[in-house]
Design a protein around this nucleic acid. Structure first.
Lengths: 346, 346
DNA sequence: TTGAAAGCGCTAACAA
DNA sequence: TTGTTAGCGCTTTCAA
């Protein structure tokens, strides 16, 4: 293997000191433009790569804040997985002198901007990066505020209104998720064999609305008779769900988010239904286990949160340490889980 | 955050030098037993963790050989993905002074032991670790030989006959894969609506036989009428496949390996079949794209090779650098891909 | 069996 | 604007 190129070598070849090479590479001030060019040319010529282990050894620590809703109440299904994934991935970053601070906010996703506001006011100069989620205008405003202060931000499954090079977004492919659900359901349904019930979730939640709309469209194209119940969480959907199941002839159910999936499963279990209704939900979490096992729940569509956490942490690393610009809109692969493989994804 | 515990601190607390602490921690010779104990006690008391970045800086390079069949001919479908995954994951390891050497063998998997033999004879003392695949007795013998020489080995989707603490195996969960295929197919089939055709692959290939057998059993339990064609690759299955499709009433097809999946798709396309036959294959690769797109191929079961490569490289790192014993038999999650998400896994 | 010392390649502080 | 220097925490070698 070719001998490794070091800073020292670049310095010798260009006739300057280590310090100057370092400043040139990292775009720091205090290097004359022509010197910088000469150095960067040599860097390219020899294909010099910073040795990250050596670099980590001496540099100052960077701090990244993770702000997400605490996994509690009905938000626990979705955010528990995300928190786990991020904690796991971020643990590996300590060795590169990146410290993660986990802020489990008491606010739900729709009000997470309050937590952003607090952190902005109280700890802005303690952080070098931010990983969070947002849905809606208020959150977007705060995100942009951080971005203006040159804090790099990685957003998870968010709908960010704005366009800053400091903001990157890792999102589920909601369109594909909706199509995938429809693609799967067609195998288990008979055209004309009963109606299909769609739980669309909260219309104001961007991911929900895109996801549900896409499913709806695909099913209509295939000629199915659709019924739709909106609402977000047990309280809102229990009554209409029961009523619908009692009065209508339903052959299939699709649920577009985690909390409703759990709610619908519970309701159906109480009503002793499920035998001959095809049920497809969203996400995967411990509480769904009994419904998978009993066969009540046939499949769920997931966004692979594990990988989401990984990628967020990786992106942050790339920016903070290697100075790589954040990528826009990375899409996560949608996955369909059934009884025989859901356990692997818990 | 708590201040980091360093070697120096341990050395001071125990009244020995840095070198002695180092020797004690890594179990090297040249430390009296009671000194070692005193040091290790202190290490545990302070929960000292080696700083991997500092450690990588000075130590000698380790070399790992990857021996797998070259992605060519009919083996290209399966091994292309594996090679990519490993190369990608291994690339990250350079920073820890682990050099990977890629040996793309001209031998097929069934004869890969010849390549193992060659490396054993020619480069045994140049390597500190081995990542490879094996199926059958001869390969197992060579693996054991490496293991006896204290070379750590990570096996991919292999069937290793033997039991050495130096050997670890990352495998697909063939049983689950078979069940998953059956679980999915039941949605698209009608009991009594025609026979189900199973391409079992090569009975002598362990993964094939387990996978196919499990599928067979599950389908029989569900009361389907099964037909089975064995054979491995285009040459062996073309004739029986054509004949069967011409003479039998087939409502579903399941193919238990990558190369046969491609072959069956080609045959069906040539025969202009596929509209009303449910086809489930195995693995995912570029060549399947047209069949997914046209709808001929309904789904494939995959073992997530990307993650396999990652884990193999990670295990090797853990052993070589941190001295962690290799884990036995790590299982990969089986995934079912359809038209709407296969592209993410290419 | 143990200690001492020389760096690995880089960053950050300070001096010029 | 540039050079010099002192380490970061560890591994390795050599000397005792």
């Amino acid at each position: 293997m070719a001998q490794k190129v070091t800073l020292k070598e670049i310095a010798q070849n260009t006739g300057v000191s280590l310090g100057t090479v370092h400043r040139a590479i990292y775009g720091k001030s205090g290097v004359r433009e022509d010197t910088r060019q000469r150095i960067l040319d040599e860097v390219r010529r020899l294909n010099y790569q910073v040795d990250e282990t050596a670099s980590a050894l001496k540099r100052h620590e960077k701090r990244v804040a993770v702000i997400l809703p605490k996994a509690q109440n009905e938000e626990r299904f979705y955010f528990r997985g995300l928190w786990q994934a991020i904690r796991q991935a971020a643990g590996e970053m300590e060795r590169y002198k990146i410290q993660y601070e986990y802020i489990e906010s008491p606010y739900p996703l729709s009000e997470i901007w309050r937590e952003l506001e607090r952190v902005y006011d109280e700890q802005l100069d303690e952080i070098d990066g931010l990983i969070t989620a947002a849905d809606g205008e208020e959150a977007s405003v705060w995100i942009s505020r951080f971005a203006k202060r040159r804090i790099p931000i990685v957003l998870l499954s968010s709908h960010y209104i704005g366009d800053s090079p400091m903001v990157s977004c890792i999102k589920g492919d909601h369109e594909r998720c909706g199509s995938l659900a429809a693609e799967f359901m067609q195998y288990g349904l008979k055209p004309g064999g009963g109606k299909v019930l769609l739980f669309g979730g909260d219309e104001r939640v961007y991911s929900n609305s895109v996801y549900a709309r896409r499913f709806e469209k695909e099913m209509q194209n295939r000629g199915y008779d659709l019924l739709r119940i909106n609402g977000f969480g047990w309280e809102e959907i229990e009554a209409p769900c029961r009523q619908c199941l009692e009065t209508e002839h339903i052959q299939g159910i699709f649920v577009a988010n985690a909390r409703n999936t759990y709610a619908v499963c519970r309701i159906m279990a109480e009503m002793r239904l499920g035998e001959d209704i095809l049920v497809v939900g969203s996400d995967v979490f411990e509480e769904l286990r009994p419904y998978y096992e009993s066969g009540l729940l046939n499949a769920t569509i997931c966004q692979y949160q594990w990988e989401q956490g990984n990628r967020a942490v990786k992106q942050m690393y790339e920016y903070l340490i290697r100075g790589n610009i954040l990528q826009k809109d990375e899409m996560m692969p949608p996955v369909l889980l059934m009884k025989n493989n859901y356990e692997y994804f818990l």
